[in-house]
Design a binder for these strands. Structure first.
Lengths: 358, 358
DNA sequence: AGTAGCGTGGCAAGCGGTTGCCGTCAGTTG
DNA sequence: CAACTGACGGCAACCGCTTGCCACGCTACT
């Protein structure tokens, strides 16, 4: 069986992979039968199919996804676009998406746009024809560019509301209300919001939500920023508090909160004694900083999972119910970075720790 | 130009994408010319090419990577296999790989094997024919399975030495020597190694390296484990020290070190006063824990980058210089988790802190 | 016995590009 | 002015697989 005519076949380097024709010849059937044996079991006699699989296995045959995708359009690939793969915020989303994709027999094409819309547009353009759907998690594209892409393939946007495009967002208003209430209960009457990227839909959403929630609770709110949505950005933000340290701050996200906390602590400020800090997203790192960060937990994994499922379910239908964005619930996770207020006014002189070792 | 016969064309849902034939017709040239205008500029008259691009842009044409990959084998896709996308250790590798791939005009197919070799084998089998090369970063496959895959596509393995397959590893021996020397300088004469997964090539390597380095310095070494290579695994490891706290421990990696540190601190143990902790890899989180973790910095980003470059450069050649694995340099990053020894013996009774606030 | 119906397998026309080979035509050259 | 050359476009044969349609042989009915 294994000895045909000396060398099997080879291209400019490694051996050429067997095709359905090779299998067909070896099994004494037509190529179409081989194709069906793999793609449409049941359409072919069980015994025949078995023999074909047998032969195929011996030859080391495997279907070429490219070739089978060409005529059918079924490539079994999905694209997930993120602005920075190394961002821990995406880790769980990627994870959830990956899982959902794998469950459905799809592979994920990860596209890192490196925070550049040029790169993003280019990559998307090149990969769009090859995938069956797209999840945009953190995109820099314009609304119209997104709608354009959504016209070609099932597409779901995360954490952004684009008209006519299905999207999945977190319940930011509720999250911010939880944060405000939590701080209010601890006696904080003044909040400061440390904002993220200026152009970010989420940032605008969170800021407005916090402002409204605080207003309803009779708290005052300030806003500083914008800052990069990273730990470095948070460190940077600490400088904004050089003159006046608020009693409570709510950060755009966990990274900013962590960076802020670290920089503050390095300057001798105690958290939560001198200032309470609240983050958003509940990334893994919130549990390993000291003190652990109080934050609004977002079901990131579920978001990624749902996004892929949504994309998959809208294959076939042009643009399904792309009405209101699907909103995922959030909840407050209380940890060590928030505590009862100990100073009366936010304008109190900055605490300069001196008696602390190391 | 844009008005042909009512509706352009459409399949079972969304409008059908234009093909080179559509462009050819609209531009009044043959399809082959359109193909060449995109794939082989210069082969076609500049003016003609320009006109074709013009028409193509108007029609919204883009080459279908599947279709062009079929006859040529050039799919512009690379696969990166990791055992867990959410693992921060991979974050930088992915990042580096992504960058290198993008630079070369390739897209990365991210494959998360979820720590299962079944999943890994399956995914790899399905995607291998569609990609031009593979990087195995953290694989559960057997050596023979890896060699098998390497036979079909250019492939590079990370942090594992597989005969006849090009690989890129870190300089574990040197890293462990740095760790041992650092601790020796701080007066530590007894080291404990907290090991990672049993079957891990890296774990074996690190353990032996540490043992040898310590022996050369006249230090004694113990080993506990195995533990999962995660923060949770590190927490678990802390239990091993319930009876006897060593003065210095070197962990399999940063996650384990962090988990260990956290659990120890929760139990009232002070780091580095009571025990010095050293990690490995220098993942981002080492900078945000308290105290910051002393660790062996590995050029993870570079590793991912190099891996992709290696894969790309070995296209064409069957199996290039797959001799000794390429070894990347590491260095010691001293942070707050290590300090001069304060206890004389490792067997000293466990320190139970009581006078500490919070 | 005649025939409708079903289970199976084969044929061949694509899917959307790529590319070897050839014809054409204008520009060179002797 | 004829022969030659090179640039440029077109033709058509794939790449490997899918699938509509057809043919064939059997079983099951009338």
């Amino acid at each position: 069986m294994a000895e045909q005519d000396g060398t099997p076949t080879d291209a400019e380097g490694r051996p050429k992979a067997p095709t359905i024709y090779d299998v067909a010849k070896a099994a004494g059937v037509a190529a179409s039968t081989v194709s069906r044996a793999f793609a449409r079991p049941g359409r072919v006699n069980a015994a025949t199919a078995e023999r074909i699989r047998q032969v195929a296995a011996e030859l080391g045959y495997r279907v070429n996804p490219l070739a089978s995708g060409l005529p059918t359009g079924r490539t079994s690939m999905l694209a997930l676009v993120v602005s920075d793969v190394a961002n821990p915020f995406y880790a769980e989303i990627i994870r959830g998406a990956e899982t959902a994709a794998a469950e459905a027999g799809y592979v994920l094409l990860l596209i890192d746009t490196q925070e550049s819309d040029r790169v993003e547009r280019g990559s998307l353009e090149r990969t769009l024809p090859a995938v069956e759907g797209v999840v945009l998690a953190g995109t820099r594209l314009s609304d119209s560019a997104i709608r354009m892409a959504a016209k070609q393939r099932p597409l779901v946007v995360l954490n952004r509301d684009v008209a006519d495009v299905p999207s999945i967002v977190l319940d930011n208003p509720y999250g911010m209300r939880l944060a405000a209430e939590h701080l209010a209960q601890l006696g904080h009457r003044d909040l400061t919001y440390v904002s993220g990227p200026e152009a970010s839909w989420v940032d605008g959403m969170r800021w407005r939500s916090l402002r409204d929630a605080a207003a309803a609770l009779g708290q005052r709110v300030h806003r500083v920023g914008p800052f990069a949505p990273t730990v470095a950005g948070g460190r940077e933000a600490a400088k904004a508090f050089a003159d006046e340290l608020p009693t409570a701050v709510v950060a755009y996200n966990d990274q900013v909160a962590i960076g802020l906390m670290l920089a503050l602590q390095a300057g001798g400020v105690r958290v939560p004694e001198d200032v309470s800090v609240v983050g958003f997203d509940n990334i893994f790192a919130t549990q390993i900083v000291t003190p652990a960060l109080t934050t609004i937990a977002a079901p990131l994994r579920a978001q990624g999972h749902n996004a892929v499922e949504a994309v998959l379910s809208s294959r076939g239908t042009p643009s399904p119910r792309a009405g209101r964005p699907m909103t995922l619930p959030v909840k407050l996770v209380t940890r060590g970075s928030t505590a009862r207020i100990r100073r009366s006014t936010p304008g109190a002189p900055r605490v300069r720790m001196t008696g602390r070792s190391t």
